[in-house]
Design a protein around this nucleic acid. Structure first.
Lengths: 225, 225
DNA sequence: CTACAGTTTAACAATTCGGTTAAACAGGAG
DNA sequence: CTCCTGTTTAACCGAATTGTTAAACTGTAG
């Protein structure tokens, strides 16, 4: 019987490794798509196998159990997400730029990773501890993506650029305004028979809208400067 | 065999009706709780029966299939939701009041109907057409809850109270800012080890924050009036 | 050629779950 | 008392799913 291939990628013969990671990647992609659409419970291993172009036996050969596969996919996405936010955000730049960058990056990321966003929401609704654990660990090691943004908010407040508001509230507002629309977009489309509308354009407009409303809602107003 | 009890409540002998609606209510409550936590696929009829204090046979006696029960619960919640929004919102009152009312009502409603909110999000993620159909029908008959708010936005813009922004974007921003926090609250709690924080107080603060940021973000600014 | 990891096929076990059924029971209505 | 409806109990079916296993096949590495 072959040894557990998931953890041990020490065997780096070029061929094996490539073949290995190739299939694993196909599985990841398929699993993500299925899990994100139907959630852990709604997903079927058979469907994942089909989508990956392999058979169920091989699926279990790579990931012994459904749960294991689910968690692997989740962890992978999460890591990817955390990494994407690590770069940007300098607390000393003008708040307008920090906010704009954060909004742009957030909207773009969610738009380009809808599967991930849906999966996260599924996990969140299911009330499992999976996300909690990952979040806690990630925050402890790299610091949270929002942390940089929070610093920027605090600094901007100290500089008198924006009003003294609870940063937690601000972050929640920004993230909500950016994310919820995209997550609910499929349903919104169903409702809104405005079929002709350009979705991409609406997203770009959304960035502007969120930035403008929130920025001007937070900046120190004339009389108080 | 008893006739289908779900649709036909014509038999209004006091006793029977009471007994009937009593059990049905227990089932509704139990089903809502289970469905909202685990989604349609994750929910188990046995668990619903247990929570309702009855047995599976009786559950199927009232609702023939799981799907039927699910849709009944969904429709019931939806109707209730639409009704709750029908009253308020006068387009001619100051926009500050319209916005404040909408935010307050929305936050309160979602807070007091978390199960419903979670269920809606589940349904949304699952990409079913259920919500789309209900929404479309409701919009056609009573007009949407947001419609009143949208009118208020349009009128306020005409009066020059607020800047000319796309009302769709504004509504999306307001609803997002109100709802997402509550839906993700369980997870946020897991992450944030600030166990001491008063959740109710945070919610009240959230209303203020959302209102303030959005209102001041939208009002016509000094130079342009 | 041999070994071996990856892969397929096909069948299997075990469980779970949704749904049905029949029989019996309970208690108010008439 | 008798009828009827709601309710329970218990057993059952059938379908779907997860997970396992054994055997055979494939192509590269050595």
């Amino acid at each position: 019987m072959a040894e557990e291939p998931v953890e041990s990628t020490q065997v780096d013969t070029k061929f094996v490794d490539t073949q290995h990671t190739d299939t694993q990647q196909k599985i990841f992609d398929a699993a993500l798509k299925v899990f994100s659409c139907k959630g852990h419970d709604g997903a079927r291993m058979q469907e994942i196998a089909d989508l990956a172009g392999i058979n169920r036996a091989l699926l279990h050969y790579y990931f012994r159990t459904k749960r294991q596969l689910y968690e692997a996919v989740f962890a992978h996405l999460f890591e990817q997400y955390m990494r994407s936010f690590r770069a940007v955000m300098d607390p000393e730049q003008p708040f307008a730029k920090s906010l704009r960058d954060f909004v742009d990056h957030y909207v773009d990321y969610v738009r380009d990773h809808m599967d991930m966003a849906r999966l996260v929401m599924h996990e969140n609704l299911s009330g499992g501890t999976l996300m909690g654990e990952h979040l806690a660990r990630a925050f402890a090691t790299h610091g949270s993506p929002q942390q940089r943004f929070e610093e920027a908010i605090v600094r901007a407040t100290e500089r008198g650029e924006i009003q003294p508001l609870d940063p937690k509230q601000t972050i929640m507002t920004v993230i909500s305004a950016c994310a919820l629309f995209l997550i609910t977009a499929p349903t919104v489309k169903l409702t809104n028979p405005a079929a002709g509308m350009d979705f991409d354009a609406f997203i770009e407009a959304r960035k502007d809208h969120v930035f403008n409303v929130i920025y001007h809602g937070m900046e120190t107003r004339g009389g108080e400067a």
